[in-house]
Simulated scan of single mutants.
Amino acid sequence: MRTYLSAACSAVLVVLLAVLVPVGALSAWVDLEIDNTDRYVDAVAPLADDPDVRNTVADLITDGAMRQLDAGPLQGAARSFLHRAVLSFTTTDAFRDAWTTANRTAHEAVTAALDGSTGEAVTIDLAPVTEQVKRNLEENGVPFADRVPVQHTDITLISADRADQLRQTFRLLRDGSVWPAVATVLLAALAVAGAWARGGGPGHRRSTTAALAALAWTGLGFALGALVLRAVVAVARGRVLSEVPGDETAGAAAVYDALTGSLRTTAWIVCAVGLVVAVVCAVLVRRRSGGGAAPAAGNPGAPAPTCDDGRAGEEWFP
């Protein structure tokens, strides 16, 4: 009966950790990265060198400019020339600076949109980039450069409909801050400490065995929670990008992957560490409880190893 109760408690612990690990990671991510301007900018700044982002920016700026230009029979040639000029500009340091400026300016708008009213999409405004592009083209004598309008040209990250579905979750994660992650660690510590205390406390072999068993289940729970987190990030990516306009999908995907990179890394690290802890502790528990041990050499009738309280071969890892 005691073994079944232990198994039930272990199962409950694993389930709780499988829920708390992803919730804690997401809440901490919103608090420490999405709500922090410097960390947000640091995450997306390297995308200035990403080919998908550069092509998306060039397409959007060119399309916006051509809607305001009338080059007559040279419209097609003018568009091609302007697109090449803009794409060439995206390889410069000036573009990298403009991209960083645009994202620093956009950060407040992004978090406000996720925390704001319904009907608002989450976007990055490329106006600072367009302004720098226009200045660069004018300095290089590119035809029609002076007629390029500096207007709000956006990369859509999350559509208005999808943002409406995510806002409540985002607010809950923001309110949670780092506390769900703290609660996860405390739960794991209490589970191990409780098992150790039930085993008899200091000086008892059973206490160490019970603590190792609880630690094994805790490691398994963390590993499972990390896999759940990785799945959540992947599913959310597919749903978010499914409603982004086709010509902006590649750029939005690059931004999404950059912002969630820390979550994916955390998931794999926690999963690996959790599995290692679970396996090592399980092996130690089996050895300490005498599971599978052979009789002593030269004494075939010797009894199985016993715990301190005399109960032969009782396993604390059900």
Rank of each mutant, 00 (worst) to 15 (best):
L229H: 01
G292F: 07
I155A: 02
D97V: 09
Q75D: 14
T90R: 01
A45H: 09
L69N: 07
T118M: 10
A7Q: 12
R84I: 02
F222E: 00
F170T: 10
A195F: 04
A77I: 09
I155L: 15
D115H: 13
A127E: 11
P202E: 04
A293C: 07
A267G: 05
V285D: 00
D38S: 15
S207D: 06
V110K: 00
G246T: 08
F317L: 13
R84D: 09
G200E: 13
Q165Y: 06
L60E: 00
P300H: 13
I61F: 00
T92V: 06
I158N: 00
A183K: 03
T169K: 08
A28H: 05
A85I: 02
V150S: 04
P295T: 08
V44P: 01
L114H: 05
G199C: 15
A189F: 07
V15A: 13
E138V: 15
A189N: 06
I124A: 00
S207P: 01
V276L: 14
F81P: 00
M66F: 13
D164C: 06
R147S: 14
V41I: 15
T91S: 13
R205P: 02
V129T: 06
L224V: 15
S207N: 06
A278Q: 06
L26K: 05
V277R: 06
L187M: 07
D93A: 05
T100E: 12
A302K: 11
A254V: 05
P22G: 05
D146Y: 09
V19I: 10
L190V: 12
A210C: 10
N103P: 13
P51D: 04
L224E: 01
G72W: 10
R174Q: 14
R239G: 09
D164E: 12
V122R: 00
A193R: 08
A278K: 01
A214L: 06
R96S: 11
L5V: 15
A250K: 08
G261V: 05
A78L: 09
T265R: 12
S262A: 14
W99Q: 02
A65I: 09
A197Y: 07
F81V: 08
D309T: 15
A58Q: 02
R171N: 15
T208D: 06
W196F: 15
V280P: 01
F89V: 03
A18M: 09
A297H: 08
T105P: 01
G274A: 08
D309Y: 07
T218A: 09
A189V: 11
V228F: 00
T105Y: 10
V148H: 11
E108V: 08
T218H: 01
H204S: 15
R174V: 11
